[in-house]
Design a protein around this nucleic acid. Structure first.
Ligand code: FES
Ligand code: FES
Lengths: 135, 135
DNA sequence: TGTAATGATACTATAACAGTATCTTTATGT
DNA sequence: ACATAAAGATACTGTTATAGTATCATTACA
């Protein structure tokens, strides 16, 4: 099981790269060279970040991407939500009720606790905080 | 994302059923009727539990399954391990190192914390403890 | 107006998960 | 003995999420 899928991971690393680069604008070309990712996949990821207002894109020659949100305000939780949807660790709440006593079920409660803990953790992490300790 | 997959879930509920039934031996037929699960899938699950020493099976007419381990000693963590392998929430440790600074990476550390918390939770739950509060 | 960039979108590949189908083996009741 | 009802073993199929590719349209600069 993977808490963070490939596209979210690429997003995180691309954003970190853009911040660290200290450039006015960063193109996909540069990102691919710097981060060794498959170009078309990364492009899709960046386009999504643009749509969601995390990045701002510029088309045409010398185009590329610029941060549209300050690194302190880009939370990992937000990125996960964009690429993977809301964090949830169990399905049986809305799928067919496979558990006989869904309200009192201890197992469900425990998993809810894990879920809350997970959300807490990813909420406490921003792109900025990743870079701070990374250097 | 699902912390507990269908086969693990079926295993949990089948084991609970067997304990609650208070019978000498329980057949797949009865389990299917009581729990409304697809018979061939449940059979596969039970066979696995037999192989792993959680259940003991009896072949032939009037055959079926019996608990081979006391409910207090059947941990959810064990069942997860049997059907889903060891609990891990990130892959990038052994897959190609996509993170530039894997040792100092804050993200990895946080996910490790979530992982440990998760393991703690499922280690604290046994079939017996599920039934205690379930009644 | 050519070119180098992104936007949009449809397609393909892979793997994990979920479930089925079929045949073999074993024990039991008659 | 033997029909029958159980589990064992194993191979196959369907479905979904993830990962990645391919193509064409649009835009802006020089
Ligand atoms: S709510 Fe699903 S097992 Fe209890
Ligand atoms: S170790 Fe994978 S993102 Fe840091």
């Amino acid at each position: 099981m993977n808490l963070i899928t490939r596209n979210t991971d690429y997003a995180i690393r691309a954003l970190c790269y853009i911040v660290k680069s200290n450039k006015d604008i960063v193109s996909v070309k540069e990102l691919v060279e710097g981060l060794k990712m498959p170009r078309p996949f990364l492009r899709k990821v960046l386009q999504e970040l643009n749509k969601k207002g995390i990045l701002r894109s510029y088309k045409g020659k010398n185009g590329g991407f610029v941060l549209a949100t300050r690194p302190e305000n880009i939370y990992i939780s937000k990125l996960i939500e964009i690429f993977q949807g809301p964090i949830k660790l169990q399905e049986h709440t809305f799928k067919k009720k496979i558990c006989p006593e869904i309200k009192s079920c201890v197992l469900k409660k425990k998993i809810d606790e894990v879920e809350n803990y997970t959300i807490l953790k990813v909420n406490s992490l921003s792109i900025a905080s990743l870079l701070k300790t990374g250097k």
